[in-house]
Write a protein that binds this DNA or RNA. Structure first.
Lengths: 128, 128
DNA sequence: CAATCAGATGCAAATATATGCATATATGAA
DNA sequence: TTCATATATGCATATATTTGCATCTGATTG
């Protein structure tokens, strides 16, 4: 398989990991520091199984890493720079300026949340 | 539905537009200037229907714009920087190692082929 | 110190839904 | 009519969601 096919396939796969609302939200939440499965579940307001399975997708694709502490499993972003890259891309993805209102405001909201302070927790504690 | 949910959904949908190998390839090919449907079809080596349908997805989401010239329809990126941005994303895929040797060199090769000069055509001609 | 129990999470099978693709058909320009 | 492209339809595959069960860990009880 030609190199460009391989690269395109990998890129597409990477994007498909990001193309699920729950996973987007998880990344968003983890942007401000590690969280355990149950708090993610609570914030997202979805079933534990759904939370767990979407975390599995992120984990399998190495977007997050886990840390076990007792009965709880804490997740964090494995490549914080990734969030920055995504952030940059938003303005290209929104295409020309006539993208739908919904999408534009969604991007705006994401920009604000994602560019926020990078996890006080990550900087200070990191106790394990 | 809370605005965060809406936002996450929009973001996810935006990413899903990029989560198909053909569409990634189209974007990268258009990175070096506008092309008509049939040359895209030829480069990708897929059916015309498939080409057209994936172009439709990109068009609907305003990532590309069309220009008709006689019987031919030329496509170009709405935001030319999009191609380069996606290409940068390769490094995150490489980043989470376990990427095989073969894959790494495929990435390298793809990078070279895709990072060609950014469309002299866009700068000069634009004849229509 | 077992033995047991409950909380937190993972995993699997079944079903629902979405997406991709090829074939066929339609449009629009020369 | 023919060429270039677009769209519709139906089927196959993939992805998501729920339900139920398994596992692991820490706490409790006897």
């Amino acid at each position: 398989m030609p190199s460009r096919d391989i690269a395109a396939k990998e890129l597409a796969k990477a994007f498909s990991v990001l193309s699920h609302p729950d996973r987007v939200r998880i990344i968003e939440e983890l942007g401000s520091g590690e969280k355990d499965v149950n708090s993610l579940r609570a914030v997202l307001g979805v079933s534990h199984s759904r939370t767990s399975q979407n975390l599995a997708v992120l984990r399998t694709n190495r977007l997050v890493t886990e840390r076990r502490d007792g009965r709880h499993v804490f997740y964090r972003l494995s490549q914080p720079e990734l969030a920055g890259w995504i952030l940059e891309g938003l303005r290209f993805i929104e295409g020309d300026l006539q993208a739908s209102e919904a999408r534009l405001s969604a991007f705006e909201e994401a920009r604000q949340k994602w560019s926020g302070e990078p996890a006080s927790e990550l900087l200070v504690t990191n106790r394990d």
